[in-house]
Nucleic acid binder design. Structure first.
Lengths: 354, 354
DNA sequence: TTGTAGGCGTTATCAA
DNA sequence: TTGATAACGCCTACAA
């Protein structure tokens, strides 16, 4: 019987009606009082006090589903990642973003719901998994490969959504992202200032915005510095195989004195660059300068700090929450770009007299 | 007006009633058909087909809030940690648990609500922060210092709660924990098998269950192996200061050939042990054998694998979810102990002929 | 100043 | 086989 199940399930979960009974008022009054009395209704202070006390005593917490259904808000923010949020391999995790998300959400009085729709346990690709997020007032999305169709549906229906990471292909989807263009340009400017005239970028063979933004910043800064020349960009599908000591020696012989690597999940490009330099019998930063457009992989954290920039992941998470709450309250999101801080590091130095 | 807001929110989002109208059936029939007809009601195939077709045509997707409200369960599990769930300082301390929690929750169709001790609900008053977890159907707790008073209140109210880590002092609180007693005993047995007759345990000066369990397993195994002797346990409040090369040399001179360290947050005991052995001019495993009751700190991951055991953190998280969902559905939790796998490692070897 | 009544979208019961 | 009808918990005009 429904009665039985309900009674069992809601055991220990008081409802407004019970608070009302205890306080000796109507359920409506409880709703008004606990709702902060936005309507400005004049209530007797005693009534208010009794209701609050009763709610406290019972440990009343509003049911999020009911709140949402009544066309009100939940104070729940969703987080949905297209891969598991906590994958076994820490290096693929969104943990650093969550640090900022959690802090900013808490500061603004929102609770966080982690929708597990796409973790390993769930039937992957289950269509409709995204719909669950509608339990929350709005949702943050992250991950490389988004189910565009489902997400589009949500956005078109006016559901507040913010993607962490630039995402232009979905019209109307708000996003926050790191300003890779500017951050990369700054790295190039620094190298130019150190006297480097020929700089090369090693990037993945992937057209993610994060990659193309870096390349754009790279090329623009080269042009501005008057360093445009032979094609300065290498796309490496398998960096370890392509960025060899021989390759590096050839570039060096041609006059290239600085190499810049894109940050990737595995850090493959950076690893290959380090190995190639060592294999070529060269030294950074005395012979060649190296820079990394992002952070080094965890297992290389002990090595000398790469010159480059840090992606402010926590700050991005916080900015995403601000954008989402902005969408929720004023209907408009704030500026989507977050600056990356330049990291001097110790892998770049003055260009050698060649 | 409420009408307006509701209308705006559900714009373009068909309801079962509309599917019913299009299919020429009642809304109930739609619910039954789309719900997979769990009740086994005999339906005319044509009816079913018409409903499905109408739903497809309209792009019907159920409203998660309404669904959860009607089901009288939100399928929301809380995860509460007294220190920030996403600590920046303590590197990923809860991360491994969350991996298992997320997977198991996803597999069972639950979403996660993330709470932190410092910020839950963002109320300025910290007291009562725990009450917010009632938003979820049940909650997982982790961390060393959970406020017992508040937690007791929840448990006494019949709120389903499971603690990750043994926690006996709170009557009626369910928990899951690693079987440190057995795992530690196994390490001692292995050392005994290698010929060690005198083994010492270095533990923290803290009475957390995780510590006392290890000590118990240690002593029991020693007794069973007939190796009981002078007090084999050292409590070190500041391992670095107490476990010195001189101290180690003295023990070695007394005939101690194997040292076992407890795993701690910082890995201080293990660090001190390694440093002391090196400082004493000894080598592991040729001179002395070392074992670690847990995993090494991240920055020592490159070093040789310590002999010892791995705490199955992900498995613990998963077990906690199973226990909690068991509480939610059948009212009873399953077996709380999870076995740790012995890790051979390379820091222990045959006892030297002394 | 407080209470009544209706509805949000879904599920489940029970009569037709 | 299908269709009223009543919850689920909360919010909010509106009446008292």
């Amino acid at each position: 019987m429904a009665e039985n199940r309900s009674a069992r399930v809601r055991r220990g979960r008081p409802r407004q009606a019970e608070v009302a009974r205890l306080a000796g008022v109507s359920q409506t009054t409880v709703s008004v009082v606990l709702g902060g009395n936005k309507q400005g209704i004049v209530l007797h202070p005693d009534t208010t006090a009794r209701v609050l006390e009763a709610a406290r005593e019972l440990g009343y917490v509003p049911d999020p589903a009911a709140r949402r259904l009544a066309a009100a808000r939940n104070n729940l923010l969703g987080v949905f990642s297209f891969t598991a949020t906590f994958p076994t391999a820490v290096e693929h995790s969104y943990y650093p973003f969550l640090v900022g998300v959690e802090q900013e959400a808490a500061a603004r009085g929102y609770d966080l719901v982690l929708f597990t729709g796409s973790s390993a346990g769930a039937q992957s690709g289950t269509s409709g998994a995204l719909e669950r997020v509608r339990l929350a007032d709005g949702c943050l999305f992250l991950g490389r490969h988004i189910p565009a169709g489902e997400l589009r549906r949500l956005v078109e229906h006016g559901y507040p959504a913010v993607h962490i990471g630039r995402r232009d292909e979905l019209d109307g989807l708000a996003w926050v992202g790191a300003d890779y263009v500017e951050a990369t340009a700054e790295v190039v400017r620094q190298l130019a200032k150190l006297g480097h005239r020929r700089v090369m970028l090693v990037r993945e063979d992937d057209d993610a915005p994060a990659s193309t933004d870096r390349e754009r910043g790279f090329r623009e800064a080269l042009a501005t510095a008057g360093l445009a020349g032979a094609d300065p960009v290498v796309r490496a599908a398998h960096p370890a195989a392509e960025i060899t000591p021989a390759w590096l020696r050839d570039r060096y012989a041609e006059g290239v004195t600085a190499f810049v690597a894109e940050e990737t999940d595995t850090g493959a490009a950076w690893r290959a660059l380090l190995a190639a330099v060592e294999g070529a019998g060269l030294d950074a930063p005395s012979d060649v300068s190296l820079a990394l457009l992002g952070s080094p992989p965890a297992d290389l954290a002990g090595r000398p700090q790469p010159t480059g920039f840090d992606i402010p992941r926590a700050e991005l998470g916080a900015a995403a929450v601000r954008a989402l709450t902005g969408l929720l309250t004023t209907g408009e999101a704030e500026s989507p770009l977050v600056a990356c801080a330049f990291r001097p590091g110790s892998t770049a130095g003055p260009a050698p007299v060649h």
